[in-house]
């Protein structure tokens, strides 16, 4: 009988008098599954539609496309402004990620090994940009830089991106460190290792998954950001998401679909790579 305790009774064991019970179960399944599949459709539809559209052979945006071709992808090659924008975004995201990792990991080490009240305050401070409106942060930082007389440049842009991307590094690394516990670091110390030896030989190799995932999410956040970037980049620096945003907003350029296609492919590829190296889904889903 133990199996019936774990799973709901199977239909074979049920007698004909159990109709209300059957109805109860079936109605639950139907309602749950129906909404869930609707939800999954909602979640995936835009990406799938964009992918299909990007292979369209039509001169304007329409769905379903009359035929398929690679013309919009090949048109990207003769679009030098786009390449410059992508390069700028890549550069900013890379530097942002590196600084976030250095600042974030060292802060996590301090937060992990200390039990003071300041840890709670620090945690709230680091995480809060996640929940605050990017437009407001961007405006505040822009006013601040104007006040102290710093002109907008790649530097101001990177600074603002560090503020909004550090939470991802700190959240993942801190979770990894907490899971690791302090006993391995203590074991290393007790064996005579110096703090830096302990960090590079024991702690860092073991929190590498958290660092990688944090860095990955920080990179993506920086690369895709529009709200803060609008306020903190100078007019001459063209950033990819901003360019795409104006392309879509102004004239529904089909080339935007091809760029989107490239971005979706790259993201999916990176996700698969990250999954191999450090189980990204575990960090995102948490089980």
């Amino acid at each position: 009988m133990s199996s019936t305790l774990v799973k709901p009774p199977s239909p074979i064991q049920q007698k004909s008098g159990n109709l209300p019970r059957q109805l109860d179960k079936i109605s639950f399944q139907v309602v749950m599954q129906l909404i869930a599949w609707l939800g999954l459709l909602l979640l995936t539809a835009p990406s799938i539609i964009i992918l299909i559209t990007s292979f369209s052979n039509a001169p304007t945006l329409e769905f379903p496309p009359p035929g398929f071709s690679l013309q919009w992808y090949s048109s990207l090659f003769s679009f030098p402004e786009l390449r410059a924008a992508a390069l700028n975004s890549f550069q900013v995201a890379l530097i942002t990620t590196l600084v976030c990792v250095v600042l974030g990991v060292s802060a996590c080490l301090a937060m992990m090994n200390s039990k003071g009240r300041w840890v709670t305050a620090m945690d709230a401070l680091v995480m809060s940009p996640l929940a605050l409106p990017g437009v407001a942060l961007g405006l505040g930082m822009m006013s601040f830089f104007a006040m102290v007389g710093v002109r907008l440049s790649l530097f101001t842009l990177i600074v603002s991106h560090i503020v909004i991307c550090t939470p991802y590094v700190v959240r993942n690394v801190l979770a990894n460190l907490t899971q690791l516990g302090s006993s391995l670091q203590e074991a290393s110390t007790a064996l005579g290792a110096s703090p830096s030896y302990t960090f590079f030989k024991v702690t860092l190799p073991l929190i590498r998954p958290g660092v990688l995932i944090g860095a990955f999410m920080a990179f993506i956040t920086s690369f895709d950001n529009v709200a803060v970037t609008l306020f903190l980049s100078d007019a001459r620096t063209d950033m990819l998401p901003i360019r795409m945003w104006s392309m879509i907003q102004n004239d529904l350029d089909v080339r935007a679909a091809a760029i989107s296609g490239v971005l979706i492919f790259v993201t999916a590829l990176l996700m698969i790579v990250m999954e191999r190296f450090s189980s990204l889904s575990k960090a995102l889903i948490g089980n």
């Binding site: 391995l184 203590e186 007790a190 073991l206």
Partner: peptide
């Protein structure tokens, strides 16, 4: 020298 509870061997 310490032998830790659950040993604290370096897993990597």
């Amino acid at each position: 020298g310490i032998v830790f509870q659950n040993y604290a061997l370096f897993p990597h």
